[in-house]
């Protein structure tokens, strides 16, 4: 549905997007992650045809965005960053205006407007002028605009920004539901959102794609991923370490917390696997040594750790000094 090849865009001397390529098919939700100024919004603005790329190709549903802008724009719904809208209009007036630009008139227009008013929970404020609304409502008004023509492609720049937790939950559900039939790209700073909604994720930094894959694959890149965390009662850290050192598959053991009653440790394997064999072998050692296990589990890794590790490789503190 969306095909981006070698996209590049500069603003004066600054390179905002530097050779990004990817594809999104119908039924996929791609999450854009990255620090501020990484080039997420610029990429989205080029896909929607607002900005012209310096080089590279974008096609949407087979239409080249540069050569056939109108045809490609018809397929796209777009929620720009900060959810702009004409603040002097009423919610209904604004949505009616966008419906008209999408080519709907008369009863069809009314039907479309009513449908999105309901989907985005905007009915109570439909006759209110947009400038009098709270941020959450403003945001959803602009979101409603992006889905008024039930587009095949949705580009959402921080769709949950400024919403309260309940609204975030609703919007995420909406995106996930729509993601079954559409191709969706959305950017966010909230990593749990990526896990909750996306089928694919991409981390962008300084205009380049530095990691991509499913959220699970990305999480595997975390240092903790595949490690086993273990909590045992009344065993000293020292003896825990020496016992576990016998394990040939373990790379190192980190004591994370030690009190009189309880010791917690993180055992990092030499090879990352998620199948639980590593945890099993640790369990065996623990039962042989007669430890009382309070908790044992394989860490799935955290997306925010991966994010920090790869966007700021120099500043991340390791679980233990490498030496």
């Amino acid at each position: 549905m969306i095909k981006v090849e070698n996209l590049r865009r500069t603003f004066g001397p600054k390179v905002a997007v530097d050779g990004i390529s990817f594809e999104v098919e119908r039924g996929e939700v791609l999450g854009f992650l990255g620090p501020n100024g990484a080039g997420k919004s610029t990429t989205m603005r080029m896909i929607t045809g607002f900005l012209t790329p310096c080089s590279g190709k974008i096609s949407i549903g087979g239409f080249d965005v540069q050569e056939n802008p109108i045809a490609s724009k018809k397929l796209v719904g777009y929620l720009p960053e900060n959810a702009p809208s004409y603040t002097d209009m009423t919610v209904q007036g604004f949505l009616g205006f966008t419906a008209e630009l999408r080519g709907y008139r008369g009863s069809e227009k009314l039907k479309r407007v009513n449908r999105v008013l309901e989907m985005c929970f905007l009915e109570p404020v439909r006759h209110q002028s947009i400038e009098t609304l709270s941020k959450g409502y403003k945001h959803r008004t602009c979101f409603a605009q992006s889905i008024i023509h039930d587009p095949d492609v949705l580009i959402l720049d921080e769709p949950t920004d400024g919403l309260d937790p309940n609204q975030k939950f609703e919007v995420r559900n909406l995106i996930r539901r729509m993601g079954e039939k559409k191709a969706i790209i959305f950017s966010t700073h909230i990593l749990e959102e990526v896990e909750a909604v996306c089928s694919k994720a991409m981390i962008i930094d300084r205009g380049r794609v530095i990691a991509n894959g499913t959220p699970e694959e990305l999480k595997m890149r975390s240092q903790r991923a595949g490690a086993v965390s273990l909590k045992v009662e009344k065993v000293s850290g020292e003896s825990l370490k020496s016992e576990l050192a016998k394990l040939s598959t373990a790379e190192r053991v980190v004591i994370e917390d030690e009190t009189e009653t309880r010791t917690s440790a993180l055992v990092v394997p030499k090879q990352k696997t998620m199948n639980g064999d590593f945890a099993k072998s640790i369990y065996n050692i623990a039962t042989q040594a007669g430890w009382k296990i309070e908790q044992i589990n394989t860490e799935a890794g955290k997306l925010d750790e991966v994010f920090r590790e790869i966007t700021m490789p120099d500043t991340v503190e390791m679980t233990e000094p490498k030496a």
Partner: peptide, 14 residues
């Protein structure tokens, strides 16, 4: 100023 230019120019109009 409002940022609506981004909305307007990404609509299917020239």
């Amino acid at each position: 100023r409002l940022g609506t230019i981004e909305l307007l120019l990404t609509m299917p109009i020239t």
